[in-house]
Design a protein around this nucleic acid. Structure first.
Lengths: 152, 152
DNA sequence: ATTTTCCCTACTGGAAAAATAGGGAATGAT
DNA sequence: ATCATTCCCTATTTTTCCAGTAGGGAAAAT
């Protein structure tokens, strides 16, 4: 299960915007520099976010990007979906479109359960919370377990 | 977050073996036919599983594959790790190797939490449970929620 | 008018995923 | 001993998608 560079970059860019005062715009170049993201690649991502209705843009001298909605109303899941499509997929298709037979039949509910669990986390955490380093209690609980940081 | 064809195939192949009586071997071709997996591709995957110590093989006329350990001691996570490496990665690297700065700093514990949650499910569910269509209670609970089956 | 910045299209290089091909080595049956 | 079967290994192909690049056009401010 791999999270793409695009999704990672998109979330980080959105976090930079979330950390800015409302109604001030940030230039793509500034975001790129702050987060170490290739400038032109980031421009494409910001375009996706704009078309997805998550950010607004302004051209010209004092131009730049800002969030289209308050940071505490945008979940991490939303950001990822806008740039990457479905949050979880198996062989490129969404779990509900899969069909298994024989002893593999219960694999479908298993993938569904995994997806539900991922959704629960990424869907409840907002840009505001991550930017302020104030993750919800249940998420913090998971992340604080030292076991969660060990490798295999 | 995408689960590869290889991981999906590997789990399904392992489930076919789990559904067989112990100490009887199944030919690669039979598994391929039962699950609709390209034969030669599957042979490579079975080779990985063997080198990973999850299946044993036998050549010749009555040859084939069987699980190297009881099906209730092999988790889905183990199968995926053997063929695909790390269960969860961001831009190809494991979460603990990542480093974020500025407002993105709390992104790391978030990915860790996601990974912990995925591990909890795929690490506790065994081949025996899936093959017998008897998922653990907590997993079933997640999968039974109708909300979990809706698309976005 | 000029500078700045977003915006759009195309495209490229490369890696990884998915699958194929062909033959060598072990095993069991005849 | 021979033969069919099946796993085993290496290499190659084909495809797809990811990540990044390039160049210029359109809007806005100064």
């Amino acid at each position: 299960m791999r999270i793409s560079a695009k999704a990672d970059y998109a979330v980080r860019a959105a976090l930079e915007l979330a950390a800015t005062e409302e109604d001030t715009s940030v230039k793509a170049e500034a975001i790129a520099a702050a987060q170490g993201i290739p400038h032109k690649f980031l421009e494409g991502i910001l375009g996706d976010l704009r078309r997805g209705g998550l950010v607004a843009s302004q051209r010209g001298g004092k131009g730049g990007y800002r969030l289209a909605r308050p940071a505490d109303t945008i979940s991490i899941a939303e950001v990822i979906r806008v740039v990457d499509g479905p949050l979880v997929s198996v062989r490129g298709v969404r779990p509900p479109e899969l069909s298994y037979c024989g002893p593999a039949e219960s694999l479908l509910p298993l993938w569904i359960a995994v997806r539900a669990n991922v959704r629960k986390i990424l869907g409840e955490v907002t840009l505001a919370e991550v930017a302020a380093a104030e993750l919800p209690g249940d998420v913090l609980g998971l992340a604080e377990d030292p076991e969660a940081w060990t490798n295999p």
